[in-house]
Amino acid sequence: MTIRAQHAARAASAAALAAVAMGSLASCTSPSASGATPVATGAGADASGTRTATGGYQTPGGPESVRVTLTAKAGTVTAVRVVGSGGSPNAQQYQAAFISGIGAQVVGKPLASLEVGAVSGSSLTANGFNAALEKIRADAG
């Protein structure tokens, strides 16, 4: 594949990802300035409720993203759900590995200081998770 064709393929992938992201955002009924969708309110270390945000990250194959839904009670994570964009088979594999192990890494941990590294061998997906986490924390106040 020529460099020009590779750039065209990446541009098409980025456009498709943007369309999916816009579709997801269009379904939000109460978006916040941070990009997170609050379901309940809270502040900082006392944050409680369920929030959702999308975090993007770069891979060798192009841009990817994960949508993170996190539930906290009194500032402690009680549940997490991650959905990957899965733009390529390679991304799908790494996102699936990340998703399978993320609960053990975050449930029971304080939201205020939470940050993940490689999970189940997937290090780049963690960048998207942490980006979404920043939006969720900003929304939690």
Rank of each mutant, 00 (worst) to 15 (best):
A16R: 14
S122P: 04
A72I: 08
A79Q: 12
A8Y: 11
G103H: 06
S113D: 15
V66M: 04
E64P: 00
G101L: 04
G56W: 11
A97Q: 10
R51I: 01
E134Y: 12
S120N: 14
T52N: 01
T50D: 06
A8K: 14
I99R: 02
I102R: 04
S30C: 05
G87V: 00
T50H: 06
T29I: 05
L133R: 07
S13G: 10
R81D: 12
G44K: 12
N127E: 14
L124W: 03
G35K: 00
Q93F: 09
L111R: 03
P89M: 01
A14H: 12
A16Q: 14
A79L: 09
P38M: 06
P110N: 07
P60F: 05
F129Y: 08
G86V: 00
A74G: 13
S24D: 15
T37C: 05
Q93D: 13
N130I: 11
S30V: 01
A53F: 05
A5M: 13
V82M: 06
L133T: 07
G108R: 09
M1H: 15
G101E: 05
T69G: 02
A12Y: 10
T76G: 06
S113Q: 13
S30T: 02
R137H: 11
A91L: 00
G87Q: 02
R4K: 13
Q105T: 10
A43G: 13
A19H: 12
A118L: 06
A26L: 12
L124K: 07
A40F: 10
A33S: 12
R81N: 14
V106L: 09
Q93P: 05
L111H: 05
I136F: 04
L111F: 10
P38V: 03
S32W: 00
Q95P: 01
G35S: 05
R137T: 10
A96M: 08
N127H: 13
A8D: 15
A79I: 09
V77R: 03
A112R: 11
G121Q: 07
V20W: 10
E64A: 09
V39N: 15
A21S: 14
V107R: 05
E134P: 06
T37F: 00
N90G: 07
A97G: 06
T71F: 07
T52R: 01
Y94P: 00
G117H: 10
A5D: 14
R51S: 02
Q6K: 15
A18T: 15
G86P: 01
K109L: 06
Q105A: 15
F129V: 07
L17N: 10
R4M: 13
G35L: 01
A74M: 08
A36V: 00
K109Q: 15
A118C: 09
V77M: 08
Q95Y: 00
I99K: 02
A15S: 15
N130S: 11
E64V: 00
P63H: 08
R81V: 11
V116Y: 09
T69N: 03
R67A: 12
P110T: 06
V107S: 06
S34F: 01
Q6C: 09
A33L: 09
H7W: 14
G141C: 11
T29L: 03
G55W: 02
A53Q: 04
L17F: 05
C28Y: 00
